[in-house]
Design a binder for these strands. Sequence first.
RNA 1: GACCCUAUGGUCUAGCGGUUAGGACACCUCCCUUUCACGGAGGUAGCCCGGGUUCGAUUCCCGGUAGGGUCGCCA
Length: 447
Amino acid sequence: MNVRVRFAPSPTGYLHIGGARTALFNWLYARHTGGTFILRIEDTDTARNTQEATDVILHGLRWLGLDWDEGPATPDPKGASKGDCGPYFQSQRNDIYRKRIEELRDKGMAYEHEGAIKFKMGRDAVVIPDLVVGDVRRELTDREAVDPDFVIVRSDGQPVFHFVNVVDDLEMKITHVIRGEDHLTNTAKHIAMFRAFGVEAPKYAHIPLILNPDGTKMSKRDLGASLQTYVDEGFDPAAVVNYLSLLGWSPKENREKMPIEEIVQRFDLPQILRHNARFDMTKLQWLDGEYLRELPDDKFQTMAADAFRSAGVALDKFPASYVSAAIATCKGKVKRFSELPAYAGFYFADDVKIDPAVAATDFTLDNLARLKKFRDALDALSDFNASTIEQTIKATAKELGVKLGLLIHPTRLACTGSTSGPSLYHLMEVIGKPTVMKRLDSVLVAA
RNA sequence: GACCCUAUGGUCUAGCGGUUAGGACACCUCCCUUUCACGGAGGUAGCCCGGGUUCGAUUCCCGGUAGGGUCGCCA
């Protein structure tokens, strides 16, 4: 059987991290089985759904690298698409829904009620065969027992989610529905409709939800709920995908950090977990740091430059060789690109800002006297590079009979405005002798 | 209120009747080191509770409890 799975988001203006994870699991299953991954836009709420909102989804999936085999090519519902089961926007499929409604009415499975159309639901328990949690026997709730039938077309003529979802899965020949566990109990309704249409329901796999660190439901406003957060924060999409794949799924042999090819190869439905997972931003950041450290130099350079520019740093005022030398000293040091402006902004600033409190402890009279000696020794240097700087500072420290740290810390603070940063010797070489002298002097003069 | 799912350190998880309960993140200590980061060596910390079944339960069953989900003319 050729596997056909789909991701069917509603364009709400943002892509929820849980939605991204659902998309990922569907994509992984399609790639693992050699099946087809379909993107369908559930834009039945015409007032709220805009092309911009659809674009957010398209961009989000592309950023994650989740390419779809069938679905929209553009955010325009009437625009181009790929695949034979279109249109892939529900707003364009009204004729199909109308025919299916007629079919149900002809079969006596649907009827009009106060202007709306309702589906005739049985009263018996429905067994939902689920690939993740096993057979689930779903009884009617007390409210449903009063009236098990439910609306499938609103009185304004718009078909509702449960109905269009089933019709589209049927028409698009979906074989496996991989979706959030929040849909589990409603699956009874879906199965009943598939039966009413006289076809077999697809296989279901309800995956656990992603919760906040405190165990509550992750909603739009919660930290990290929107995929855009990770784009803005400069995360590596490969790291985000890797982390997401580990939420609710566990590969064998304690594998965690894996290339996407390995995730695809290992991913399968039986290993999906049954319990919800809490989102751990700290672990994502760790994983992202691992990816960042292993990034090829050229990619690191372009992504770092982007991070500086989007933070408003005018890199273009500096020679390309200077920019790339500056960025090179940050490789392997920062965990995220978003840290870069704070970490290495001193490379691109006219003056460094020094916290008065920190200055008070580091720029003591004794330290400044030593700093002056080091400054003069540097001044005499004709060849100003990391190696000669290191030799000079070590010689000065020896001459003064003090620990290296007593020279290094004030020097770093004067040159960068921070107590931590890239390798001091290399950073000094990059900013160059004139700037180093200027910054040291400004500290010495102020004292 | 009813119905459904779930339950291993703070977090993500391995485990599928007998284990010194394994790994990862985080945290702590030490080492390395020009700061930070990385790396290396250690460490603290866990099977929700109560009944069964069994020679033996983290593991199987039942009941609690707790968390999550659903019961819309939202998706």
